[in-house]
Design a protein around this nucleic acid. Structure first.
Lengths: 235, 235
DNA sequence: CTCACTTTGTGCACCGGTTCACAAAAGGAC
DNA sequence: GTCCTTTTGTGAACCGGTGCACAAAGTGAG
């Protein structure tokens, strides 16, 4: 018995590959809009900003969906990647914390266009509860568990202040949520089996600052070596 | 001649380490606030959510700042990491695109507290230009080059719509900016020597969806294998 | 059918990063 | 000082991921 389809798939796509699939998907969608029917790994790689060997290896993990001498069928590949990522089903997400960031996320178009549906906005501030944002009514955090259950929310986005994040995380995990996207600048602790992805805006800036410093150091001859703990601070 | 300080440093901290330094820094700041004077690699690792061997190796790249049998001096380590990341100087950043996200970023507290100073907000929409946000006046994008030069902006944050991002990137690079934090969902192309970091909110969600799907598949016995391209769509 | 050309899929060598496990160093008790 | 405990700093094995380079598979011309 030959299990053609799954030879390479066999339950297990490298994490690095998964992280790039959305990139390919976006590039492919652009191509589909412009009416392209097929695309070579080389062209797609350029559009996605990766090298073509890597792209081919990534796609090979999903199956053998290309045609040698021709390339990949754009629509077909879009479908396969979408299915692999789980975007062919619709995901109900809840955003907790409707500050500036929460509002920005609620209004962000990139979600709905990809199978994500914002099913609830929640906040603790009575001043904010009742507001209408992006067509949704902001509900009180007390409703958290009820809302998650009632609307089948499976992914929760945390945009709360740092101090509230762990507490909210505990509550959503307790109701069975196993996927959390965390914008609060704290390390959340959750049980095994719960996936957390973290986005920290200030960390990205700090990494840029590091490299920027290196660049300017190099130009000015580079101090770095000389700099020391200024004045023996009371150990 | 013994170059004690730089033996391990010698120009070159692994990228993975740099990405974690901000994490350690945040954990350390929390400890300093609570009055802790020293901390072991084990405790700090837990607070930062990493394993202690990794933490020690990371810190060893900066130099030998710990004391065996004791741990690390909290204040001293904060200073060393800050210096390494370039946070002891102040960085002027400009935010281009003052939509929901741009506003959220402008109001985000995590920046100023870490040596970053928002020096300008720019937008193309005359409706938005002139608004006051987070104490700043929103200026017209035509002023981009002048503002960057005049205020010594060295890091630019792109929060524009996707179509505008490349164009703005070209302009800021032309004035000499070499560090860009990009929130627009496009692959920017820039010359060598320019650092770009990308944050894509929808990609993070897609990665979560992938894992979430895997989890629910597993429970329901897992379809996946059966699923195929529905109906021979016109190739 | 054969030949020339294109493009995929992948074996393999390589590399950065992680983890283990332990020697070296420091502090404290006596 | 000696011994015992704690904790760092790092050598070395390991692991996942990258990129080269090429055989295999397809197309199209003649």
């Amino acid at each position: 018995m030959i299990r053609r389809l799954s030879q390479a798939r066999e339950r297990g796509i490298p994490e690095a590959t998964v992280a790039r699939l959305p990139l390919y998907l976006r590039a492919l969608n652009g191509m589909a809009e412009r009416g392209l029917a097929t695309v070579s790994s080389e062209d797609l790689a350029v559009a996605a900003g990766v090298n073509s060997a890597k792209l081919r290896k990534d796609l090979s993990h999903l199956g053998s969906y290309g045609t040698r001498g021709v390339g990949y069928d754009v629509e077909y590949l879009i479908y396969q990647i979408s299915r692999e990522l789980g975007l062919t089903q619709d995901w109900a997400i809840a955003i907790v914390g409707v500050g500036n960031l929460g509002r920005a996320l609620a209004n962000y178009g990139g979600f709905v266009s990809r199978g994500f549906r914002i099913a609830a906005l929640l906040d603790a501030d009575p001043e904010v509860v009742g507001d209408h944002i992006a067509g949704l009514n902001v509900e009180h955090i007390d409703e958290l568990e009820a809302v998650i259950r009632r609307r089948g929310v499976s992914i929760v986005v945390l945009a709360t202040p740092a101090v509230a994040a762990q507490q909210v995380a505990d509550r959503v995990v307790a109701v069975g949520v196993t996927s959390i996207l965390n914008f609060a600048p704290v390390v959340l602790s959750v049980p095994d089996g719960v996936d957390i992805r973290k986005v920290d805006l200030s960390i990205e800036l700090q990494i840029l600052a590091f490299h920027e410093q290196r660049k300017t150091d190099r130009m000015t001859g580079g101090p770095a070596m000389a700099e020391e703990w200024p004045e023996a601070v009371d150990l």
